[in-house]
């Protein structure tokens, strides 16, 4: 496939630039797994020796596993609730003509343009003023707020992408709104729902700025990591875990992209 038209001819300078850019993106990140195998608590060149002891030590690190579990819980709850709210919202804004829709969209999308620290302290103030103890629930509330715009942004194209007459056909054939959703809408937007779940989970799992204000005595994983960064002796263990998270998120992202692409192919080939 030789498509070297006048406009599209290859550009070596840009290609080299792209490689340097990728190096800038990846090299810092790759330092984490690299030093996680270094047999020294000091994170500096030259290497002292190869070891896997940081990984085996990590296995017995109870507080870290507790924090990991907390993060998974918060991320799970956040992704499910935010996606559910996203499905309602995306269906409403794509399927109905409503006066004042731009205002409603503005309110829902607002968290995207407010610095996290401001939302964090605002929630902290209202939560503590109303006497609610800080806990993983308050963290989840904050994360839902951040994730709903992302869920909407993921789901709206999916709803827009399929012919609205599909739903009308189901209603026309005798199904009420509930069954129309389950028999037609849900199966068709399912890849979008899955993508939204993954995205929201990832955002929540990684979120530190708001969680820092809203967490009580139970830390999420980023809060735990942050607390460990101050102690040099704990650093290699954190690096080991960071490396593991890196590998896992690599697979999750590749899987979700593959999923997204596979299904968008489906859609084009069936001519929707």
């Amino acid at each position: 496939m030789k498509e070297t038209t006048y406009i599209k001819r290859p550009n070596r300078t840009l290609f080299i630039y792209a490689l340097i850019y990728l190096a800038f993106l990846y090299i810092p990140v790759l330092f984490l797994p690299l030093f996680s195998f270094n047999d020294s608590i000091y994170i500096a060149f030259p290497f002292v020796g190869f070891t896997t002891k940081w990984y085996s030590q990590m296995y017995h690190n109870e507080p870290m596993f507790a924090a990991l579990l907390n993060s998974i819980r918060v991320g799970g709850a956040t992704s499910v609730i935010a996606t559910l709210l996203g499905v309602f919202g995306a269906k409403a804004v794509t399927r109905y003509r409503m006066p004042g829709k731009p205002v409603a969209m503005f309110i829902i999308m607002l968290p995207l343009v407010i610095p996290g620290i401001i939302m964090g302290v605002a929630l902290l103030i209202v939560v503590s003023r109303s006497g609610i103890p800080l806990s993983l629930y308050t963290v989840t509330l904050g994360h839902i707020l951040v994730c709903v715009p992302f869920a909407m942004a993921t789901l709206i194209p999916r709803f827009e992408g399929f012919d609205r007459s599909m739903e009308e056909a189901a209603a026309d054939l005798g199904e009420n709104a509930w069954w129309t959703f389950w028999r037609v809408t849900f199966p068709i937007v399912f890849p979008g729902i899955l993508a939204s779940l993954l995205l929201c989970f990832t955002i929540s799992f990684d979120e530190f700025i708001m969680a820092f204000f809203l967490a009580g005595t139970d830390p999420t994983l980023p809060i735990y990591i942050f607390s460990q960064l101050r102690f040099p002796a704990k650093l290699p263990g954190v690096l080991a875990m960071g490396a593991l998270i890196l590998v896992v998120s690599f697979f999750v992202v590749v899987f979700s992209q593959w999923l997204r692409l596979r299904n968008s192919n489906d859609i084009t080939s069936s001519g929707i």
Binding site: F162, D163, S165, M166, E168, A169, A170, I188, I267, S270
Partner: peptide
């Protein structure tokens, strides 16, 4: 329907 709206 004009687009037929066949459930994919």
């Amino acid at each position: 329907f004009q687009s037929y709206a066949i459930f994919p």
